[in-house]
Design a protein around this nucleic acid. Structure first.
Lengths: 199, 199
DNA sequence: GTTATCTTGAACTCATCGTTCCAAGAACTG
DNA sequence: CAGTTCTTGGAACGATGAGTTCAAGATAAC
């Protein structure tokens, strides 16, 4: 008896995700009006499907985590090459941040730290989950590097993983201010050189 | 003949600075109405003194740079102790970010990277100036550390300064999501351990 | 085809946004 | 004290914010 949706909810969510990724929730370019324009659906369908704007933002964050961040983290964690895995993870990150369609957008989760809604419990939980996933993936790769005898230090790798996670945040952030890929790759090279044994 | 201002413009600017620091420009808590409430002056005086909201934000950023960031950078650059200077700079940073009045606010310039206005040329110029100042101060301190024979690496210190700058950004960012001082101090300790000669 | 149920479009609510305007008041000069 | 000029309070501007409502349209079950 019921009618069915005349659109693909996930396709609409993906459009909203990109809007919030680029502009956050506090910009005129990410108003509900802008979302309706970008997705092609109207207010009624939007609210009936996703609830409030805040709910939509949460869903968009979740989608970014599941569709963009988590796969990259998983590849990193499962890469058995050690330091080269970390290097490739960061070079791919820099490439995405500085070139192509999403250039200058930064990371949606880094941006979310500064969003007007960043203190909301739902947002905060996602921030923590994202951070934990990133740190753990780096720790796995570092663990592999230890196994392969690639690391110079004898310090616990927990701290190194956390340091690299913060480095990733810094890269994501600076890419929003127009930092070039060359610039960021140079910084990456320097940071990784600290990890390798002395020449 | 003319009347004079019935308030202290810099005191008002300081109030606005705190509002934009904590909430950015895109939040309901940093509306012009909120600024008038926080500063005690009304719209007319606000606009007559600072111009548009965007101009006020620029002035607030400039004030943060001159009154908060630059003095800390200068102390770091002029500190002749080398690595301990860098350590103290970061521990003071973490302290400010995690305890006291400004706890959880992060760094106004890190936040500005994500603000709706971050692509404005005036804002962008300030972001670059801030980044250059931070990086140069770290480079000066590292240079001193080299002179004192405190560094483990033979790599150029340019990259290390940039890496530490991005680490600072990461610390500032995570402090907004409730990262504890212990957590961040641990990460700092690990990062600095990479710089010191092996035990 | 009828009917029940969901979707959809568009008008609408009320609040707030940034900004402007103007009359009333205050302060310095002479 | 008179006169000039700026400041100040508060109302008002048009635009836009998020969210709701409801009749009209579409769909599938019977």
């Amino acid at each position: 008896m019921p009618d069915i949706k005349h659109f693909d909810p996930d396709a609409a969510l993906e459009r909203a995700e990109r809007l919030f990724w680029k502009h956050g929730t506090g910009s005129a370019e990410s108003s509900v009006q802008a979302v309706t324009t970008a997705t092609g659906l109207n207010r009624s369908s939007l609210y009936a499907t996703f609830g409030s704007k805040h709910d939509l933002y949460l869903a968009a964050l979740r989608r970014y985590l599941d569709h963009r961040a988590r796969p990259a983290f998983r590849r990193l964690a499962e890469d058995q090459r050690g330091l080269p895995a970390i290097r490739d993870f960061f070079t791919a990150l820099i490439d995405i941040r500085c070139t192509g369609e999403h250039s200058g957008w930064g990371c949606m989760f880094v941006n979310a730290h500064v969003d007007p809604q960043h203190n909301d419990p739902g947002v905060r939980a996602l921030l923590d989950e994202h951070h934990r996933l990133l740190r753990d993936a780096l720790r796995s790769a570092l663990q592999t590097a230890v196994r392969l005898g690639q690391l110079a230090t004898t310090h616990p790798i927990e701290g190194t993983a956390e340091t690299l996670a913060l480095l990733a945040y810094g890269i994501n952030l600076r890419s929003r201010a127009g930092a070039t890929a060359e610039e960021l790759l140079g910084t990456l090279h320097s940071a990784l050189a600290q990890l390798s044994p002395r020449a």
